[in-house]
């Protein structure tokens, strides 16, 4: 059950990410990113993070991606054109990214025995436990993020406002 769900939604994640890379139109990339984020929510549930799974759906697939799609439609963004700048990125990017992935993956493969297995229902963080840690031990950082969001709202309004 766990393995089947992991394989299905892990493949959805990888497929969505590759589709984001291959599509030329930004709206197609945005929709495939929604697929990635929603299947990540299922993976969070499998790892016992129930609050984060719902927050992922609401905040990422809901709020942030709607904002992206809204901006794409507002600016009427068409297909991206190929320009000379991308060739250097291919030459430096492909070996660099492959090296990054190989280093990370080989580290994880060599350490796989010490990581152990993820058993379904072995470690479930309920919203109550999470909020107890958040509001008891980390109240100050939580309040500071509210100031951050306030600053972000003001900044967004100032930046996107039309010059008079």
């Amino acid at each position: 059950m766990h393995l089947a769900l992991f394989v299905i939604f892990g493949l959805f994640c990888l497929g969505g990410a590759l589709n984001l890379l291959l599509q030329r139109h930004p709206i197609n990339s945005a929709l495939s990113l929604i697929v990635v984020m929603s299947s990540l929510a299922v993976l969070y549930l499998l790892l016992g993070a129930e609050f984060l799974a719902l927050a992922q759906i609401i905040v990422y697939s809901g709020a942030i991606m709607v904002l992206f799609v809204f901006v794409i439609m507002l600016l009427n963004a068409g297909e991206e054109e190929k320009t000379h700048g991308s060739r250097a990125a291919y030459l430096a990017g492909i070996p660099g990214v492959l090296a990054l992935f190989c280093v990370l993956a080989s580290t994880y493969v060599t350490l796989r025995t010490s990581f152990g297995q993820a058993r379904l229902g072995n470690f479930i963080v309920t919203t109550e436990e999470l909020s107890r840690v958040l509001f008891r031990n980390l109240l100050l950082p939580f309040e500071v993020t509210s100031i951050l969001i306030l600053v972000a709202i003001l900044g967004a309004v100032v930046l996107a406002r039309k010059e008079q």
Partner: peptide, 21 residues
């Protein structure tokens, strides 16, 4: 069936690499 934690980490490494690329 249990899934090794390393598979989740490898999936996250793959997503990160695709993002960088």
């Amino acid at each position: 069936m249990d899934v090794p934690i390393a598979w989740y980490l490898i999936l996250s490494a793959a997503l990160f690499s695709i993002g960088v690329f």
